[in-house]
Simulated scan of single mutants.
Amino acid sequence: MGTWSTDILGNDSALDALADLAHSGFSFTGLAEELQEDYIDVSAGAAVLALIEVALAVRGLRELQQADAVEAGRAVLDDERAAWLLAQTDRVLAPNSEVYDLWLETSDESFREWRGKVDAAIEDLRGALGSAAPAGAMGGGSGD
């Protein structure tokens, strides 16, 4: 996973997803297709987590340096898509996910720090949506 830190946006794949979002090159339909694979590629897993951070920023719960991605997120990260992202975390944070596998290869301390940040972001977004129950499948629509 290229450059990385324990921050959710501290890796190249997450930053690539934000750049794609900011420059209209991001597709939720494409992401949904990638997430249906048996093994989730790092780019798809990191995109889910990065978009959760953007969804939080759109709702005023995070300040991100990537203002252009946040602005683009305002148009496409409605509550339905945010809930869909939350639903995807069950697979992104489990075996058969490259993001998870890469973090398992780090030190226990780094893994716990990263996982704590991810879990906090998930809980923050659940709280913002007012429900712990994620939405089901979602399709294209505007901002696909």
Rank of each mutant, 00 (worst) to 15 (best):
R91V: 01
R91M: 09
L104P: 03
G116V: 07
E80T: 13
V118C: 11
L49S: 07
G73E: 02
L64V: 02
A55T: 04
V42S: 10
V42Q: 07
Y39V: 14
L51F: 06
A94S: 13
A83H: 03
T106Y: 12
I52Y: 04
W103L: 07
Y100H: 09
A69R: 01
E33K: 09
S43Y: 08
R59W: 06
E37W: 01
A46Q: 02
R126W: 04
G60W: 03
I122R: 07
A75F: 08
G116A: 10
Y39A: 05
E80Q: 13
S110Q: 15
G116T: 03
Q36C: 05
S97T: 00
V76Y: 04
L85Q: 01
L125V: 06
A46D: 14
W114M: 13
L49V: 08
W103Y: 14
L49K: 05
Q65A: 14
D78L: 06
E80A: 13
S110A: 13
I40T: 12
D90G: 12
D119G: 02
Y100V: 00
S110H: 10
D38R: 08
D68V: 05
D90S: 15
G116Q: 11
V92N: 02
G116E: 08
E109H: 11
V42R: 02
R74L: 09
G60L: 12
E37P: 01
L64Y: 13
E105H: 10
W103F: 13
S110C: 09
Y100N: 08
R115H: 13
A82T: 01
A47V: 07
E37R: 10
I52H: 08
R112T: 13
Q88V: 05
Q65R: 12
V70Q: 01
D108Q: 14
R62Y: 13
A55S: 15
E113H: 15
L35I: 05
L77A: 02
